[in-house]
């Protein structure tokens, strides 16, 4: 049983499948994210595959400051991804809402809606940094295999609302 758990841990770390979500990003981070998957950076060495369906994904890569329209969609897609799963917030927008701060059309940052495991800061971040973030998220995911979190993660809105 212990051996099976260790095997599962390794397999989760070595096979992160990604799903890319845009929550109202300016497209800068999306371009860098796609660049990280090109042959030049060869993410497949880490076992990374970009998947078309959130049902197949282990790691959700979210860009953008979470607009009012995108907030519900993000929660839906997060619920559609089967556990265990991890979330990587790409760029400064999902972390702090960046230059769009105090905009009326935003419901960000991302941490108010879904639990975020890794933040990759930058405007936009470099592809290497995104890959490092994905690798870190895969390691977190593997650790989580043995210690599953509570069924519904509790998000405190005021805990992450720093600047408001």
């Amino acid at each position: 049983m212990k051996l099976w758990k260790r095997l599962m841990c390794t397999c989760r770390r070595r096979s992160p499948w990604l799903f890319h979500m845009n929550s109202g990003s300016c497209n800068g981070c999306d371009i860098e994210f796609v660049a990280a998957l090109t042959p030049r950076y060869d993410a497949e060495q880490l076992g990374v595959l970009l998947q078309g369906s959130p049902r197949h994904a282990d790691i959700l890569c979210v860009t953008g400051p979470v607009t009012r329209k995108a907030a519900d969609a993000i929660k839906t897609v997060y619920a559609q991804a089967p556990g265990p799963k991890a979330v990587v917030a790409i760029g400064s927008c999902p972390a702090t809402t960046n230059v769009f701060i105090e905009s009326r059309t935003l419901e960000g940052p991302l941490g108010r809606h879904i639990p975020v495991d890794v933040f990759v800061p930058g405007c936009p971040p470099r592809p290497d940094a995104i890959l490092q973030g994905v690798a870190k998220a895969a390691a977190i995911l593997a650790e989580r295999a043995d210690h599953p979190p509570a069924a519904a993660p509790v998000i405190k809105p005021d805990a992450v609302e720093v600047q408001r």
């Binding site: 095997l7 397999c11 070595r14 096979s15 282990d58 089967p82």
Partner: peptide, 14 residues
Amino acid sequence: MQPFYDFIKLLGKD
């Protein structure tokens, strides 16, 4: 071992 890792990982998912 990648296809093997993928297969085992998928077995462990919800």
